[in-house]
Design a protein around this nucleic acid. Structure first.
Lengths: 209, 209
DNA sequence: TTCAACCCGGGCAAATTTCCCGACGGTTTT
DNA sequence: AAAACCGTCGGGAAATTTGCCCGGGTTGAA
């Protein structure tokens, strides 16, 4: 029996996954969480065999949540999923410690298989992005955003959301100063001068809209 | 005989318009210019009956050029054209003093008619955007960017281009300080807090990409 | 173990942002 | 004609951010 914690901010999505997963007798969604904070709360109550985690959480976001979970429980097994087909999200999630990544458009079988594999401690990548991902990693510098560390990526996401530096500091529990430094680093790494260029670049990379 | 100054940075486009216009015996493209500076130069050499002006000039941009022309020759007759179907560009161009506005996708007849009308001092609007424009003006506040003065609009355009405040100051021959104030005003008028939100809003309004 | 990378944040000078202000020249209103 | 606006242009001053350098703590890999 694999006990699962399911984290997504949309109730319908949670319901859908619950149905899907529980068609297998040996899978059980032990708890759900609609936010990062709630997820951390549930984790204080019990320790699932597997955490299925939507990357696009409001607030601190899925990557930051993964970071925090792994900080407390370094052996936690996290399967990340997201609507983004862009390899960038996958690589950031994996770098942050997720064992697997699947897109929301993946077929039910793919998801089920991913769940089993991650529960066993294996790594897995959604087949629909794997080829593109491999290519991206080969070219390496193709996407300048791949130079960003997971943390920087997280800060960037919040900046793109229109948040102020102060607010981001609170959200991530770090000093505004660190956020400023991150902001600066991001612009430097992406070779961009103004925030507006940053937004446009992000748009081109499809991190936005 | 109507003597015309044609301003567009693309040689092919100029050529196309020249052909089109000179099929009429009473229209004559007396001079061409590929940039704002060049246009101002030509205007020192002669005074056309009509100026046909692409709004999307590199550098200072068409609206600013119109402003400068009208500053020297308040009775100059300017027909603006642009690829943008968005009424915003039209209204800004008219507010800056252009007598007419047509889109680049307008039919040859429309353009020819516009030329004659503007040369006569009449005002004209491209039929393909007129309805939308009227609706926009009715709703008025529909588009928050309509609150921007022509000058602010111009500054915004350059900011969205990724230019720095200093650079814009040089381009528009105003103090960087004024640009800063403009930048501040723009954000205030659009109800936006960060530059990134500004970029996203601009994107939504299709002023960008 | 050493090394590199990431995360965190202090420091500090220089630049920018934020707001408020006055001046000038047009337009419109009365 | 006077008054009331509006847009443009910019100064001033305080608050904030930027740009860049630093060092210390972790962690994972060579």
């Amino acid at each position: 029996m694999i006990r699962i914690l399911l984290v997504d901010d949309h109730a319908v999505v949670r319901e859908g996954y619950r149905r899907l997963l529980e068609r297998r007798a040996d899978l059980r969604v032990e708890a759900e969480a609609a936010s990062a904070d709630e997820a951390l709360q549930r984790l204080r109550e019990f320790t699932p065999d597997l955490i299925v985690l939507d990357l696009s959480l409001p607030g601190m976001g899925g990557i930051e949540l993964a970071r925090r979970i792994l900080q407390r429980q370094p052996d936690a097994r996290i399967l990340a999923f997201s609507m983004h087909r862009d390899p960038l999200f996958a690589s950031q999630a994996m770098r942050a410690g997720a064992l697997g990544y699947v897109t929301k458009s993946s077929s039910p079988e793919v998801l089920i298989q991913a769940v089993y594999k991650v529960a066993r401690g294996e790594r897995i990548l959604s087949p629909d992005i794997a080829p593109e991902m491999a290519l991206t990693l080969l070219q390496e510098k193709a996407n300048p955003a791949s130079e960003l560390s997971p943390r920087e990526f997280e800060i960037l996401r919040l900046l793109l959301d229109g948040r102020g530096v102060e607010e981001i500091g609170n959200l991530l529990n770090i000093s505004p100063k660190t956020v400023q430094n991150g902001h600066y680093q991001i612009k430097a790494k992406l070779g961009v001068k103004t925030d507006i260029e940053l937004a446009r670049l992000a748009m081109k990379l499809k991190l936005i809209d």
